[in-house]
């Protein structure tokens, strides 16, 4: 095929570049502000370059709120949830994909059906339940209710079903049990799907806001997203500190995303699901 005339190509590229800049302008502005003097923030027209070249805003924001603590808490919670979900979702997905047991369709529909119940709807009763279990203001409240997810089960089940049965049959004739088949055959073949599932879970819990807002009351146990937004509302006009804190919460994920984006975006277009 012939390329279109240069004018058309220029228009397309310019549109794409402008869109890319516009979409990422908030991040650019966040980082620039994090490296500004407090007085420079209020200059008009704004300065589009950093005015200080050290990390004093970061240091100060780490001093006024326990951001390091938030980061540690969030990492612990997000990793625990990711690990536990991998275990329970994989087990269930394998059972649903491969074992022919009575009630399989029912269990599958029951698990998938939870996708129809958004977390906003169960926010109040889940809070009451967690309170009855005496878990309010603990990491348990952030981890235990999320040890399995319908989305994860569904994603892995779909993937397991594409693995040829013959591989498994051969192993079964050799006398392998289900667990060994899962561990030695299915899991090694499913690494891409498991990675995708793990990435989704980790990201969702790194970014989680509503549930920790409701269930965690002490600052020492708070997660990063709620932590920095509370900080922002308390230090309303301290833009340099707010942007330094936001940079800490956002940039690691963006950098991480650059490494895993292929897997991630392809996972989305395959499953057509989100978050």
């Amino acid at each position: 095929m012939k390329k279109p005339p240069a004018v058309v190509r220029w228009i397309v590229y310019i549109t794409l570049v402008i869109a890319a800049i516009a979409i990422n302008l908030p991040f650019f502005w966040m980082v620039i502000t994090a490296f500004k003097n407090e007085s420079d923030v209020f200059s008009m027209p704004p300065k589009f370059y950093p005015t200080i070249f050290d990390f004093r805003n970061f240091v100060k924001s780490f001093q006024v709120v326990p951001i390091a603590r938030y980061l540690l808490n969030t990492t612990i919670v997000a990793l625990s949830v990711t690990f536990l979900q991998l275990v329970f979702n994989t087990l269930a997905a394998y059972g649903l994909a491969r074992i022919n047991f009575k009630g399989r369709t029912f269990v599958f529909l029951a698990i998938i059906g939870t996708l129809m119940v958004p977390p906003e709807v169960t926010l109040v009763p889940l809070y009451i339940l967690v309170r009855k279990m005496d878990m309010v203001n603990t990491f348990k409240a952030l981890i235990i209710p999320f040890m399995s997810s319908a989305f994860g089960v569904f994603l892995l089940r779909q993937f397991f079903m594409t693995i040829p049965r013959e591989l498994e049959d051969a192993a079964r004739i050799d006398g392998c049990g289900r667990m060994r088949i899962l561990w030695n055959i299915i899991i090694p073949l499913s690494k891409p799907a498991l990675w995708t599932a793990a990435l989704y879970t980790f990201l969702a819990h790194w970014n989680s806001y509503m549930w920790p807002l409701v269930v965690i009351s002490s600052d020492q146990k708070q997660l990063i997203q709620v932590g920095i937004s509370k900080f922002a509302s308390m230090w309303e006009t301290e833009w340099t500190l707010q942007m330094a804190a936001s940079t800490v919460a956002v940039v690691p994920i963006i950098v991480f995303f650059f490494f895993v984006q292929k897997q991630f975006i392809e996972g989305i277009s395959i499953s057509g699901m989100k978050e």
Binding site: P26, F27, W29, M30, W206, N207, Y209, I224, Q225, V226, I228, S229, A232, Q242, M243, A245, S246, A249, V250, I253
Partner: peptide, 8 residues
């Protein structure tokens, strides 16, 4: 994260 982005 929407929360951090909202602060920005």
């Amino acid at each position: 994260a929407m929360a951090a982005a909202a602060v920005v």
